[in-house]
């Protein structure tokens, strides 16, 4: 796959190996400094897990990557395209980046199939038939093709979240962002969603996952990022991160979350 550098963007890194580069990123909500000097490079195919206490800025960080939030300082380059106010670039980045939300955010007035075909049809201008075939393939991949004709409200939470994953995959993204995808689920449904994500990881998808599922982090992550108070406190391989945390704050957090 070749990567076209966006016009006027100097490539400060090797575009073939980096999926995301965040350099000195700051963000404020009014006077509140929510992201402080974030530096994070994500290689292609890499799986990153982000954890940290509530309010530490995890959601804000990943929402900056597909520009659901705007950063005020520093630069974010996604798949060779630097994010600016330019709508074309935002569009390009959003086509490459899929996102899964804690609350699923499926479109309740559309069937499961329509949820999945919406973006291919209207954004990629794919013929309806082709989009439906694609959607059915991906619904099969997340193991719920038989629900295609139902509405989201008729599905369990775990099924809805798997539809949300299929909906994102229908745009054939290069990067997938997950914001606490299992936090709103009943415990017995967590596994089916984590299994789907594990499958994605094994297929080589670049993934950034905000989660407190430490078992998943240990098993799947290449690196674990710990955030606190708007800063990245520590980045490490999962084994190191859990067995030999470097910072006091990380130790405190882990002692609270791992019993």
């Amino acid at each position: 796959m070749t990567v076209e550098p966006a016009p006027g963007v100097p490539l400060a890194f090797d575009p073939d190996s980096l999926a995301i580069a965040m350099i000195g990123v700051h963000k404020w909500y009014g006077a509140f400094h929510v992201l402080r000097n974030i530096n994070l490079d994500v290689r292609r195919g890499e799986r990153i897990v982000i954890c940290g206490p509530s309010g530490s800025g995890k959601s804000t960080l990943i929402r900056c990557i597909n520009r659901l939030e705007e950063h005020q300082q520093g630069s974010i380059v996604v798949d060779g395209v630097e994010l600016t106010a330019d709508l074309k670039r935002i569009d390009t980045v959003r086509r490459d980046v899929g996102m899964v939300f804690q609350q699923f955010n499926l479109f309740p007035h559309l069937t499961i199939l329509e949820n999945c075909t919406l973006a291919p049809i209207w954004v990629k201008k794919m013929p309806k038939r082709e989009a439906e075939e694609l959607a059915m393939r991906l619904l099969t991949r997340v193991k719920i093709p038989e629900q295609a004709g139902k509405y989201p409200g008729q599905l369990s939470g775990g099924q809805q979240q798997r539809v949300a994953i299929a909906r994102a995959l229908c745009m054939n993204p290069k990067i997938m962002l997950f914001d606490e995808p299992t936090s709103a689920l009943d415990p017995e449904m967590v596994k089916e969603v984590l299994d789907t994500m594990t499958g994605l990881a094994q297929d080589g998808m670049t993934m950034i996952v905000v989660t407190h599922e430490m078992g998943f982090a240990r098993e799947i992550a290449d690196r674990v990022v710990f955030m606190d108070n708007g800063e990245i406190v520590e980045i490490n391989a999962p084994k190191e991160f859990f067995e030999n945390p470097q910072h006091e704050r990380t130790k405190l957090f882990l002692s609270q979350i791992l019993h």
């Binding site: 597909n66 659901l68 569009d91 959003r94 086509r95 980046v97 899929g98 996102m99 939300f101 609350q103 955010n105 499926l106 479109f107 919406l118 973006a119 209207w122 954004v123 909906r167 994102a168 229908c170 745009m171």
Partner: peptide, 19 residues
Amino acid sequence: GQYEAAQAIGMSHLRALRR
């Protein structure tokens, strides 16, 4: 969240409003 989900799959402002 509905609008954000529409944005995240690449829909433009007007198309997200319409659909």
